[in-house]
Amino acid sequence: MTDPTARQDPFGLIGVRDHREYVDALKRLTEQGRRERCVALLSQTEAHVVAELLGQYALQHPSGHLNQLAATLSARLYSRLGA
């Protein structure tokens, strides 16, 4: 039998205590995701929009904790889109 909390939080984000811990958890997930098989979840247009939003966030919040993560994810999306 599996833990019901694990099913509700498959990525381990519920237990984070603050913004910094949240950013660290997202960075770990991003690195884990680089090693996993790719699955198409968005259309090319949707992925482009997400990449643009992440890139704009990174540019407008240069000192924010999520800045580097947003910039990295934006770059990866653009790379996979061939842009």
Rank of each mutant, 00 (worst) to 15 (best):
L26R: 13
G33K: 07
L66D: 09
T45L: 11
D24R: 12
R17P: 01
G55V: 06
V16R: 00
H65R: 12
H48L: 15
F11S: 08
N67V: 01
G82T: 04
G15H: 08
N67M: 14
E21H: 07
T45M: 06
Q32P: 04
L59F: 05
R28Q: 14
D24P: 01
A6Q: 14
D3W: 01
R17T: 12
G15K: 08
G64D: 14
S74F: 05
A58C: 04
G55D: 01
S74T: 00
A47K: 03
V23R: 04
C38D: 10
L26Q: 09
C38Y: 10
E21A: 15
R28M: 12
A71V: 04
Y57K: 06
T45C: 06
H48C: 00
A58K: 05
R80I: 00
E52S: 11
E52P: 04
E36L: 11
G55M: 00
L69K: 03
G12A: 04
A75N: 07
L66F: 13
C38A: 15
R76E: 14
A51D: 05
T2N: 10
N67F: 11
G64L: 03
H19L: 12
L42H: 13
P10H: 00
L81T: 02
L73T: 02
H65E: 14
F11N: 10
L69A: 10
L81C: 07
R7Q: 10
A47L: 06
D24A: 15
M1V: 10
H19Y: 10
M1N: 08
R17A: 10
L54Y: 01
A47S: 14
L26I: 01
Q56C: 03
Y78T: 02
Q56W: 11
M1S: 10
A51W: 02
V39G: 06
L81R: 01
Y78D: 06
C38N: 13
Q44W: 09
D9G: 01
E52H: 15
H48T: 13
R7W: 06
T5R: 15
L41Y: 10
T5Q: 14
L26N: 04
